[in-house]
Amino acid sequence: MIPELQPWMLLIVAMIVFTIGLLGVIVRKNLLIMLMSIELMLNSVNLCFVAFSRIHHLVEGDLTALFVMTVAAAESAVGLGLVIALFRTLRTVDSDQIQMLRD
């Protein structure tokens, strides 16, 4: 017996991917991989919005997912610009090496 595809099943995938993304931000030291993990989290939240939009029979979740996509594009552009500016001064993308305020 194979069940029908229900919208709440997507929430499980979104939950797992969000947790993996959070783990990536906490565990990794490479700033690029941290940004990629943030993208993973934003994507899983998008999936949640669309799934809840289907569950509630509304269309607003789809629209919110669109706006989240815009914010994600802006965020990754600014974040990567920051990474490049940082690499120019410190010659590294290791987040543990950013300690100019300490010394």
């Binding site: 993208e39 999936l47 289907r54």
Partner: peptide, 21 residues
């Protein structure tokens, strides 16, 4: 993720996912 969006019927989001992301 684009495949998942298409499966659930959010075709616009699926197309934009591929284009934007």
């Amino acid at each position: 993720f684009a495949g998942l969006y298409a499966l659930i019927g959010a075709h616009l989001i699926a197309a934009l996912q591929i284009l934007v992301y």
